[in-house]
Structures are given as structure tokens and as C-alpha cells.
């Protein structure tokens, strides 16, 4: 039985959940708010984790960063699961069009052997960097505090798996779905001396304990440098080699990076402006990982790009970003 009624006759007894009302006052709340604030358990944990008895299950002290309220790290994109997947679905639909266009037109056949080997040596191995980013964002998701940041880290982690899969599909487009190119690119990653310092850095990041340090190393330092070098500078280089079409296949990563940067910058700005201590820690971590990453990228960049300033151009883009966020040291 369905009844037609006039909504005006029904007066709600409250506008939203009590925790949301305590935070924002007695007024209607957004779906992002109701699906984010205070969702994570805060008190009265029953047992210490067997795997980390020094901490509670949910524990703020898994990082040295201190926030008065971890829910200050809200997502400017207002992503909760529903909005997140719908946004990405739109995005993947456009990407799918690009990939099938590339395939249907047989664009892979127009690529010179030189370009193909370039892609196998420099672009496709990035799938392993994306895989590292997946691990590192999952790490923050599992050990971070408060749904505001942990859900965004999960979305980021899944995005990185998606990026890795799109990069792999570029390989599959080149080798007619045999995965030979993935095998070759993996050998580059594992054996080519120019990649080894970067691989070592990736391995090292997954052993760092403080989840916020991992977050800074990966999502701020490594990603800013990598995106500049590979999706901007390498992109130009490929265009100059007559392989402008590759941009069709990396557009997802380009758009993704923009979207993700908006979130990252906003979160880090909030953390940096919370306290001097936070700001100093961020500075310390950035300094450490910037130096390491520049060092690690040196050989691969030197062999990939002719421009001897390539690395300093990427570093300048990082510097610009740090200034925007407010991280200094």
C-alpha cells in the first residue's frame, strides 16, 4: 500500500544525526557529512592488536602529526563512496572511448620501433610505481585516523590500482594482448640500472612506519615529481617523436592527477597550518624524501629526457606546490 500524502503535514523531529548537529548546528546536513564525520570508533577498544600491542586498534599516535580534530581534513571534492564511484565511472567512460579509438584506428601500428621501446623502457614500468602508491595509500587508510582522511586514502589507493591497470593496458595495446610488453617492461624495472635507484626508493617507502610520512613521501613528493616528468615532460618528448596519440592513453592519469591534487593540497594546507610542530615535521619529511627521490630519479631521467634541466624543472614544480601549501624548511 502506498499513500499519497502532503509532506507539509509532517514535521521532522530533527534535521540530522546528533554528532553532525554537535559539529555544525541543528540544520540539514549533506550526505558527505553524514557519511563521514565520527564514523570511526573512538573509544573503549576491547583488545590491543596482537600485531601492534603498543597501539589501540584506532590510535592517533601512529603518526607524529597531531591534529586537534582529525575530521578537519575534509575532502574538498566531498567524496563519499557513491560520489566517488560515480565520478570515476564518468571518467573511465571517457577513457574507454580513447582506448577503443586507439585500438580501432590501429594507432599502435603507426608508432615507430623507437617510440615503442621508449614506452616499454620508461612509461610502462610506472605501473610498478603506481602499485607502490596503492600500497602506500592503503597503509595510510589502515593506520590513519578519522574517516575524513582514511576514506580519501582508500579512494586514492584504488585509483592507483586503476592507474596501474591503465598503464598495463597500454602495454597490452602494443603487444596485441600477449603481455609480452609487460614482461619486457618489468625486466626494465627489475634489471635496467637506470631504474634501480627508483625501485629501491619504492621498496624503501613500503617499510616506513609513520603513515603520514609515507603519505608525504608518496603522494606529495614522489607523485609531484613523477607526474611532471612522465606525464608532462615525457609526454612532450613523445609528441616530438611523432607519438602524440599516446596522450589519449594517459589522459586518465592527467585528469586524475588534477582531481587528486585538489584534495591533497587542501588536506596538507590544513595540517601545516594546524601547528608549528606539524609544519616542521612536514618540512623535515619533505626535505628527506625530496632529496632521496631526486637522487633516485636522476639516472632514469638522464637517459629518458634530453633536457639536462628536466629534473630541476620537476623540482621547481614541487617547490611551487610546497609554497602553495605552506610547507617550508
Amino acid at each position: 500500500m502506498t499513500i499519497e500524502i502532503k509532506t507539509a503535514t509532517l514535521q521532522p523531529i530533527r534535521n540530522t544525526f546528533a554528532n553532525i548537529e554537535r559539529r555544525f548546528g541543528d540544520k540539514p546536513a549533506s550526505r558527505y557529512q553524514e557519511a563521514t564525520y565520527d564514523l570511526q570508533g573512538e573509544a573503549n577498544f576491547h583488545y590491543r592488536p596482537l600485531w601492534q600491542p603498543q597501539y589501540e586498534l584506532n590510535d592517533k599516535s601512529r603518526t607524529k602529526i597531531k591534529m586537534n580534530d582529525w575530521y578537519d581534513l575534509k575532502d574538498p571534492r566531498q567524496f563519499y563512496y557513491g560520489t566517488y564511484v560515480q565520478q570515476r565511472a564518468k571518467h573511465q567512460e571517457a577513457t574507454e572511448t580513447n582506448y577503443s579509438f586507439f585500438e580501432k584506428r590501429g594507432l599502435a601500428e603507426h608508432l615507430s620501433e623507437e617510440v615503442k621501446s621508449y614506452l616499454l623502457t620508461y612509461l610502462i614500468p610506472l605501473r610498478h610505481v603506481e602499485h607502490t602508491a596503492n600500497l602506500n595509500n592503503m597503509y595510510g587508510c589502515a593506520f590513519g585516523y578519522g574517516t575524513a582522511i582514511t576514506q580519501a586514502l582508500l579512494y586514492n589507493a584504488m585509483d592507483r590500482l586503476g592507474n596501474a591497470q591503465y598503464l598495463s593496458r597500454i602495454g597490452l595495446l602494443l603487444d596485441g594482448n600477449s603481455a609480452e610488453s609487460l614482461t619486457t617492461a618489468k625486466q626494465e624495472w627489475l634489471k635496467n640500472p637506470v631504474w634501480q635507484p627508483m625501485r629501491a626508493l619504492c621498496e624503501e617507502m613500503t617499510t616506513v612506519e609513520d603513515w603520514f610520512e609515507v603519505f608525504i613521501a608518496q603522494d606529495l613528493v614522489v607523485d609531484t615529481l613523477i607526474f611532471n616528468l612522465f606525464y608532462s615532460q615525457l609526454d612532450e618528448k613523445l609528441a616530438s617523436m611523432g607519438a602524440r596519440d599516446i596522450a589519449l592513453l594517459t589522459e586518465f592519469m592527467q585528469v586524475w592527477n588534477k582531481d587528486s591534487s585538489r584534495w591533497l593540497d587542501s588536506v596538507l594546507k590544513t595540517v601545516a597550518s594546524e601547528s608549528e610542530d606539524n609544519s616542521a615535521l612536514l618540512g623535515e619529511w619533505v626535505q628527506r624524501w625530496r632529496k632521496k627521490t631526486l637522487e633516485a630519479l636522476k639516472p632514469v631521467v638522464a637517459s629518458m629526457l634530453d633536457n639536462s634541466d628536466a629534473l630541476s624543472i620537476a623540482d621547481a614544480s614541487l617547490e611551487e606546490r610546497l609554497t602553495k601549501i605552506g610547507i617550508t624548511y
Binding site: R127, H128, A164, G176, N177, A179, L182, Q196, R199, E203
Partner: peptide
């Protein structure tokens, strides 16, 4: 001409093959 991947192997290529054995850490 190399053999095309079946679905199972393709999925493996897109997931577990992203990982590698560590040499440095």
C-alpha cells in the same frame, strides 16, 4: 605472434604481476 592472454592470466597481469620480489629492502 605471441599468444593472447586468457581472462585469468590477463587479470593476473593487471593485479599480482604489478608486484615484484624486493632486492633493496
Amino acid at each position: 605472434v605471441a599468444k593472447k592472454l586468457n581472462l585469468k592470466d590477463k587479470y593476473r597481469a593487471l593485479t599480482r604481476d604489478l608486484d615484484w620480489d624486493y632486492d633493496y629492502s
